[in-house]
């Protein structure tokens, strides 16, 4: 068993909501609500969920880019929840983030050399000629070359920019990298390239990833374990193929919403009913119950805990394992493909 790198305990992040004539706090958005998650060294944990489910907030809070409302974050066994100033800056050298929008995360007025070199300058690791060499090494690692050093972000394509961002994240030799939807703004061919690059880098740099995406296939491709989030909570955490062994009705619904490239199986998707409830006043009991076709009286009253249904497969459903979802189009398609 490898060592634990990040431990998240009962993490909560609420955003205050103001209103009225005098801008009083009238409520709060439960962006991340009581999430616990362990991440082991060298693995990739995928976080998946609809937009607005709090996955991005979770990623940022873990890195202390946002201050948690409640709960604890441990990094290499050290509590970093309350760190400030220099101590925080030092711990941040170990954990980096790659943002969703590479254009916005590069300063338009700074050349690539200085953008990628910024972590090195800031932490007084290198400057002058040494800096140039280091930056060049990093750029080469992500498949760029010396010509790119002195260009501005707007001279690159989306995929190249994302690789620049990755190079910057790797500049400090971090242990843990949060990938916040890194491929959602690039097209599919580039996406595959970038994903493979990330996998290679993970081996070369011995990285641990938290991989956030709304794209199930991408997450499946990248991750060792997958956490499914809904309204600020983790509903299912599975080490298995999410397309085959989902035990939570929400996960199943998500899986069956993925389109299948075969008309024979079309039209069978199990569509979720209703809209995502507001995270300002989340539903009582199980968060998913208003949209769940299996919901019973118990679901409205009691909130299900995450419980182990075997081999580290955690599910937060009162009826986990008891429900028969039938077969999703994806499964049938997968079978059809494998049998043919």
């Amino acid at each position: 068993m490898t060592e634990l790198l990040v431990e998240i305990e009962n993490l909560k992040k609420y955003f205050p909501l103001t209103g009225g004539v005098f801008r009083k706090v009238v409520g709060k958005v439960h962006a991340v609500d009581d999430v616990s998650l362990d991440i082991r060294e060298g693995e990739t944990v995928g976080i998946v969920g609809e937009s607005g489910c709090g996955k991005t907030t979770l990623g940022r809070t873990v890195l202390r880019l946002l201050n948690p409302t409640d709960g604890k974050i441990h990094f290499q066994g050290r509590d970093i929840t309350e760190l400030k100033g220099t101590a925080l800056r030092e711990i941040r050298r170990q954990m980096q983030i790659v943002f969703q929008d590479p254009m916005a995360s590069l300063d338009p007025r700074v050349t690539i050399k200085n953008s990628v070199g910024e972590p090195l300058i800031v932490n007084k690791i290198a400057r002058g000629p040494l800096l140039r060499n280091k930056v060049l090494e990093l750029l080469q690692a992500v498949g760029l070359n010396e010509d790119h050093l002195n260009r501005f972000p707007h001279e690159f394509s989306g995929g190249q920019r994302q690789r620049i961002c990755i190079a910057r994240a790797l500049a400090l030799n971090p242990k843990f990298v949060v990938m916040d939807e890194p491929t959602s703004s690039t097209d599919v061919s580039v996406q595959a390239q970038t994903l493979n690059l990330m996998k290679d880098l993970q081996k070369d740099f011995k990285l641990t990833y938290m991989f956030i995406s709304h794209n199930l296939s991408v997450v499946k491709h990248m991750s060792d374990r997958i956490a499914v989030m809904y309204l600020g909570k983790i509903l299912e955490l599975t080490p298995y193929d999410i397309f085959k062994t989902s035990k939570h009705p929400y996960t199943f619904a998500l899986v069956s919403a993925v389109p299948v490239p075969d008309p024979r199986f079309a039209g069978r998707a199990q569509i979720l009913k209703g809209e995502v409830p507001s995270p300002i006043n989340p539903p009582t009991g199980c968060r998913f119950h208003p949209r769940c076709i299996f919901a019973q009286e118990k679901c409205k009253l009691e909130e299900p805990e995450l419980r182990d249904v075997g081999d580290g497969h955690l599910v937060a459903c009162h009826f986990a394992g008891e429900l028969d979802f039938g077969k999703s189009a994806q499964m049938e398609y997968a079978q059809a493909v494998s049998s043919s």
Binding site: L63, L65, R89, E90, R92, R93, Q96, I97, F99, A104, S105, L106, D107, E118, P119, V122, N123, C165, R168, A171, L172
Partner: peptide, 9 residues
Amino acid sequence: YVEAARSVG
């Protein structure tokens, strides 16, 4: 990019 700069310390 400001957040990115902050995240590298």
